[in-house]
């Protein structure tokens, strides 16, 4: 029962990831990201209740504080600051994108089926879903021309690595976890400064403007 519930939570996280790939508005993608982070917190909380473990409780606390409260607030402010309310079209059209997503999920599932010999059998299902989520996150990074979705894609990728670790064992040691979440925060801040700088210099966040940053030889 508890296994089913945990798997169900990961699958809803994957669903959020898939919807993020096809979402057209930055604000809706941000809402989905918040939903995914909340699901991650619920996942860790369920696990911490059923396998009482100090490290897990610490990671629940870190996840809630950093990912459910601080990051969404910062992202919201960033979106308001950069006026990101309009549509952001992906590079390829929607059906192709959906086909790619399905292919990636398929690939992840097949891959983890073939890796059954190395994996402990109990964690294989969670592993396959988390792997699919990681693949979808990589698609999210490359699929749009505006720089903000790259940051969101990185955050989703971080989420899925987290889930991968949590599915395979009882999660990271809490020190590493603390380091990781600060990593995310610091990375996010650097990205924010970077984006603001780009916005000021070029007046837009289109990726092709980044080409001009290269030094001419």
């Amino acid at each position: 029962m508890i296994n089913d519930w945990l798997l169900f939570l990961i699958s809803i996280m994957l669903l959020c990831g898939v919807l993020m790939v096809v979402g057209t508005h930055i604000t809706s993608v941000l809402k989905l990201l918040v939903a995914q982070n909340t699901l991650l917190a619920v996942y860790l909380l369920t696990k911490a209740i059923y396998v009482p473990n100090a490290a897990l409780f610490v990671s629940v606390a870190i996840t809630v504080i950093v990912k459910v409260i601080i990051l969404p607030l910062l992202l919201w402010k960033l979106a308001r600051f950069l006026h990101l309310s309009g549509r952001v079209e992906p590079i390829v059209n929607k059906p192709t994108l959906l086909l790619l997503t399905t292919a990636l999920v398929f690939f992840a599932l097949i891959l983890s089926r073939n890796m059954l010999t190395f994996l402990p059998h109990t964690s294989a299902a969670g592993f396959s879903l988390a792997l699919a989520n990681a693949f979808v996150a990589m698609l999210l990074v490359i699929v749009r021309r505006k720089a903000v979705t790259q940051v969101i894609g990185l955050l989703v990728l971080e989420n899925s690595i987290f889930i991968l670790a949590a599915a395979l064992s009882t999660g990271f040691p809490w020190l590493i976890e603390l380091g990781m979440s600060f990593d995310v925060l610091v990375g996010f801040m650097i990205f924010t400064l970077f984006l603001m700088r780009i916005q000021r210099e070029y007046g837009s966040l289109q990726i092709h403007n980044f080409e001009k940053l290269k030094e001419r030889v």
Binding site: M1, I2, N3, D4, L6, L7, S11, K47, Y50, V51, V105, F106, L109, I110, S112, R113, L116, H121, T122, S123, A124, A125, G126, S128, L129, A167
Partner: peptide, 14 residues
């Protein structure tokens, strides 16, 4: 997901 996911042994939390 229904067809390709590895069916798991229930009992131990993953």
């Amino acid at each position: 997901l229904t067809q390709l996911m590895v069916t798991q042994v229930t009992g131990v939390p993953i």
